[in-house]
Write a protein that binds this DNA or RNA. Structure first.
Lengths: 223, 223, 223, 223
DNA sequence: GATGAATGAGGCTTCATTCAT
DNA sequence: TATGAATGAAGCCTCATTCAT
């Protein structure tokens, strides 16, 4: 599963890799702004200037961290879509959710903080003050994400445009919140016992909920 | 509807009130850490030192902002629960959601940024690094929230403890994400046209989705 | 001669004033880029952040320093011009140089580093990379300086436009270089003995040289 | 005209040469401190460490740049002086200026940024904080320059020591300022049209001015 | 109550330089 | 010779906070 070129593995002896790892952990636990360069380089045991040398700036580091998750995530979604599409005309909702879940699990298996950081970043992107981030994501991943979304939309054809828009975001919110706080929630569930997050378990619980939410009857009188 | 003591109205001529209002707007648009005291006092057109004078510290301000939303929110929930409980044995899920929606609308009608900030704070509270905030919320509002939660749990009796825990958070995620980003989402939906957020509309769309999610069949094999 | 409002005297007990004074001394001795905020605040015995508080940034400080010299200089030139113009039709070259000399002496008498720093700034303004500085000077002082220049041009009427342009800059170069390095030159002249610069002496020597340079015969064959 | 040893031509394929060329351009446009090693090596398209490898340090590079101009300049002045001295007893002022002009033109023809950088360096040497630079120039070129200066002094015999000192620096200021800012002034004169600097033109205009300045009557009463 | 000034800590970034290869 | 990586020092600036008035 770990073929070279598949997903970049971070060599612990490599400065850039250690920075990425430290950053992921801290971003995931504290947020982006709350995490300082000193914390990152301290945890990574590298020189403070190394971040700027390798990533240009803190923002550059954040984006590198994002790309290292988003790229394989998109790739896996694409792969999954191809499989799902072949033969059948269009994939159904549950199949689409399975594709997404597969991609998420894939990324998570390579890096236990990656999803959490990624979701935190997506959350931030909804802040009105983060237009640069919005532009970055749209430029880099907008087109690829649209493809997935189209199938999603097709399945929910009975819904009008606005209802679809809102339901999509309600359920996106579920995903972003749950995966952002994956570790906290797992710890809460197991009453403080530290344990590796079993993402597959979580997704197995979440998919029926999302599926049902998407298919919920539309309330009368909502114009 | 605006009886004294009900929900504090912020006197625009009052320094503390103007700070609160400015802070809510900025926290809502930028986040807590991203918002500086200078921005707040600049927007409020008050002296920089006034925040510390009136609220002790930035954290104190954040908590004051939170309390001004959370207190009336809890009060309204309690009121709603009383009404719902009277006569009938236990309120059902949809009734409980209606209670919550009513409380949210009530708070929103008094202050268009309050909910957004509140939800952002709840989101933060799930960060492992924010134990102080967690403690604060638990101390102040934990007990009151438990009561609401009990009814919620009662309605979902068929679910085992863990399934309930996760579903609760999936759907809490929906609410937190949606209301945090209320203004952004409204703007997106209306394609850039600035318009007041119609919270009731949003909730009317959200409740059926949450309700359906809560009632979704449990996937076999999830132990 | 020191009427209030005439030229701002820097109160030694005033933080901003002490910063200005320290900055002038260091800028004069080392140049702008070579002088650090720590050196300035160290010499002024104020907090490092005080510069940013009072002047916004290092560039802001540099411009404040410049304005404190340029404003009274322009004022004095204007006053001198009025006196020179009254009665006679147009002032001659030597009269114009006397006006300038008077203004320079006036500024120098209030602050022994002011001219040196100012001239260093003017020198910098000729760097292609300093377009912001050029714009700043043009906006703030361009118009006022043009007036003086017109009289200068009028006196040198026989010269064609280009010859005038170059001679103006040759002689401006003399002034900028001499006054930039006023203290070094004075020290050199007096063989290392530290002594207050006698600007009037220097200008008394310079004016005949400049005057003669301006009136020099034009070399044949220069088209 | 390009005999080996005469003036080093910089081989574009040679790392050290490319660094020198890039440095000259950038020093000329921005100043020494303002120009970073990264800019230099970036423009030269060589490795960042190459400067330290070839020149030891940034200061070493600056001095190398200076020497590559100063050495041929001094050589040419010496040559010119020999020609001027042969036959006649002592060369006159205008002849001395022609010698200097010839040497300057010679250097400029080999490298269009060399003079500008050199003059900028001479300017810096008058800063009290640049005693190292002063020592360097004195050691390396002091003696050779004194010879030229003696003839200069001889021609101005009627002037007392101090008057000579000051006039020398007034006019040195003209030269340093004009040639430092050669490109900016040329661009200004031609109203923004980019054009190669015609140094001979500039010098042809400057020499009569300097000559006249040197010969100006001494103002009475200057002791 | 309210304020303008001041401050110490710490933010990110950039610098010239060095080192291992 | 040449280089990509790494580094310690220092750069400017911003932060929340405090204090005297």
């Amino acid at each position: 599963m770990d073929q070279p070129g598949d997903l970049p593995m971070y060599d612990t002896s490599d400065t850039a890799g250690r920075i990425i790892q430290a950053a992921e952990k801290l971003f995931s636990e504290q947020g982006f702004k709350e995490t300082t360069m000193r914390q990152i380089t301290g945890l990574a045991e590298v020189n403070l200037a190394a971040v700027n040398y390798h990533f240009g700036s803190k923002v550059g580091l954040i984006r590198s961290v994002a790309e290292r998750s988003l790229s394989p995530l998109c790739e896996q979604i694409d792969k999954g879509l191809e499989t799902a599409v072949s033969g059948k005309a269009t994939p159904g909702l549950d199949q689409l959710l399975q594709v997404m879940a597969g991609a998420l699990v894939y990324v998570h298996n390579h890096n236990r903080h990656a999803l959490s950081v990624l979701m935190r970043l997506l959350d931030q992107a909804y802040l009105p003050s983060q237009q640069d981030l919005q532009a970055f994501l749209r430029e880099r991943y907008g087109a690829r994400f649209q493809r997935y979304l189209q199938y999603f939309r097709a399945d929910a054809a009975p819904l009008d445009e606005r209802e679809f828009f809102w339901r999509l975001h309600f359920l996106l919110g579920s995903v972003i919140f749950t995966l952002s706080n994956m570790h906290t929630l797992s710890a809460l569930e197991q009453e403080g016992q530290a344990a590796e997050v079993e993402l597959e378990q979580i997704l197995a619980r979440m998919i029926p909920v999302i599926s049902a939410g998407m298919k919920a009857p539309v309330r009368n009188g909502t114009h």
